[in-house]
Nucleic acid binder design. Sequence first.
DNA 1: GTCTATACATGGATAGAC
DNA 2: GTCTATCCATGTATAGAC
Lengths: 211, 211
Amino acid sequence: MKTISDEQKPSLSPRGAEKREKILEGALRVFLAQGYSASMDAIAAEAGVAKQTVYSHFKDKHSLFSALIDRLLDHFLTAGMTQEILLLDAPSFIRKVAQISLSRMDDWEYVSLLRLIIGESGRFPELSELYVARMVKPGIQKLADYLRANDQLRFSDPDAVARIIHGSLINFVISQEIMHGKHAMPMPRERMINSIVDLVLFAGEASKQAS
Amino acid sequence: MKTISDEQKPSLSPRGAEKREKILEGALRVFLAQGYSASMDAIAAEAGVAKQTVYSHFKDKHSLFSALIDRLLDHFLTAGMTQEILLLDAPSFIRKVAQISLSRMDDWEYVSLLRLIIGESGRFPELSELYVARMVKPGIQKLADYLRANDQLRFSDPDAVARIIHGSLINFVISQEIMHGKHAMPMPRERMINSIVDLVLFAGEASKQAS
DNA sequence: GTCTATACATGGATAGAC
DNA sequence: GTCTATCCATGTATAGAC
């Protein structure tokens, strides 16, 4: 498993691992709430340990940050699509994928993580690249593979269509939740889901007839 | 014009306005490159003025930041779609909109601004709300109005379709440029544009026949 | 209004006792 | 390994001369 975190893992005695856990959980809350500009004092306080204890587990602030992102990516990866979804027929599959993607709007941690990764993608390009490699690319790949394999649909460029589907979903999360657009331009997620399903199915059908 | 910046504008004598301009241009470069965590010293240095001069034009850091975002939104707004595009037929219209949206990938200032607004949307929700109100909502509105008016297309929910188009375009910019995905998962923008045009036209045709 | 110099607070990281 | 106390650099904001 490729990783970018380079923190030392001292001893790993039972109690030592507990502290490490407490630190990561404190850092989770503080970083997601305040961004990378959060202070190490605030993290230590939130974790309920002394600041030096943080530094005994992580080389510096950036190492702690990287380890945290790493961990979060693992967490959200497992909470992704299962294999059995691939067995669904086209309408159910598209709908299910859309529902899963948009259900993350309710997850404060996911929304904050996405904001954080985008926000720090200038200073820490490795983190956004890791996010792309671990979350975005595999997700689009699975989607494109399904589109390619399903003979109800016949797109000339399934990879591009997969990106359209994925992009419209992710950007809905970004515009509604991250950028707080749900007040100024509200839209029930069901409408988005229905339109995406319709768009893909109609177009998939039509391009099949055209070929 | 609604605005959130609340800085004072002292005297506005010719030379005073020049200084203000220099400050804003320096702040532009530094903020876009380093994010909100950029120091006032760095901004003053980049602008070629003393730090106190910055404070004589802007109440504090946040006021300067807000004024800058405000200004940038105006700048990119005017560089948007002209009215004559609305006269194009459906295929040309969709393609033109997509081309304009993706052409912003080449604009470092736009990419950085988007990253900055998303990144600071936690600490400064007003800024992202302003972005939504001024850029996103009007853009989607125009797109939806066109879809509604054009009788080559007949969608049951033009507003949702407009969001899908817009979202897939914006997210392409985000994933490729902001999150540096263009190396790990490259895709020529022409492929995106072609597939969006195909998807919308095929689906718009098909749903017309279905109704 | 613009400059130089500075006050005051905060934050990252470390020293040293236990 | 964990704690308390501290060093030192940096950053926002202001004071005072011109």
